[in-house]
Simulated assay, not measured.
Amino acid sequence: MAVAPAVLALGGDVARPVRLTVSDLLSWPQHRVRVTFECATSGVRHHGFAGPLLHDVLCDAGPGFDPARRKDRLRFLIAVSGTDGHRALLSWAEIDPDFAHAPVLLAVGIDDTSLDGAGPQLVLPQDRCGARYVSGVNAIRVDGRYGPWA
């Protein structure tokens, strides 16, 4: 019996909430990275990942900031959770080309193996520690309620 592909729910302060599979994520330009990071339980890890940039996927969902006001994006946070309960939080400025422009991926493959059954993996090539790598991503929430005015 075939196993249904894992589904990622992308929502929050976006114009077009969407449910995506690894197959859906192949429709964005794919990027490849080789990473080395430290894992608290298994030491130094080396992997190759492929997938779209998180920024590209989130922009297609229509984040709720005013694109004409560059600083408006700075109040947006991105919460990512995985099927095992692991969570990570990023700021929009980390992935935005006008700010830190970190090449954060929603990986669809690891070491040339598809993640279709497990779900995409959040990959932060700039991180020395692997704590923000989230496997089996099943939810991403974009939230712009933060700041002193909240």
Rank of each mutant, 00 (worst) to 15 (best):
C59E: 10
A4V: 08
A118N: 05
W92P: 00
I110W: 05
L90S: 12
R132I: 11
G43Y: 00
R128W: 10
A68I: 04
D143T: 06
P97F: 03
A131Q: 11
A100P: 05
P125D: 14
A2Q: 12
D127V: 07
R132V: 15
I140V: 13
R34K: 10
G51V: 05
G144H: 02
G12A: 08
R128P: 08
V33A: 06
S135H: 14
D98L: 09
C59W: 06
A9K: 10
L8W: 01
L106G: 00
D112R: 02
M1N: 12
D13G: 04
L74P: 00
V44N: 01
A68C: 11
W28S: 02
A118D: 07
V14F: 02
K71N: 11
R132A: 14
V18S: 02
H55M: 09
A79G: 12
A100Q: 15
P103E: 13
I95L: 10
T36G: 04
A88C: 10
L90Y: 15
A88W: 06
P103I: 11
Q126S: 14
P67N: 00
V108I: 14
I140M: 06
V123G: 09
P97V: 01
A40M: 09
D60G: 11
T83N: 08
Y133W: 14
A100E: 15
C39W: 09
P29S: 03
F49A: 05
Q121W: 14
P52G: 02
V44T: 05
A88F: 08
T21L: 01
H101I: 07
A61T: 04
R34L: 04
A40I: 14
S135E: 13
Q121A: 15
D98I: 03
A150E: 10
D111I: 00
V14T: 08
G64S: 06
V33W: 01
A107L: 07
R75P: 02
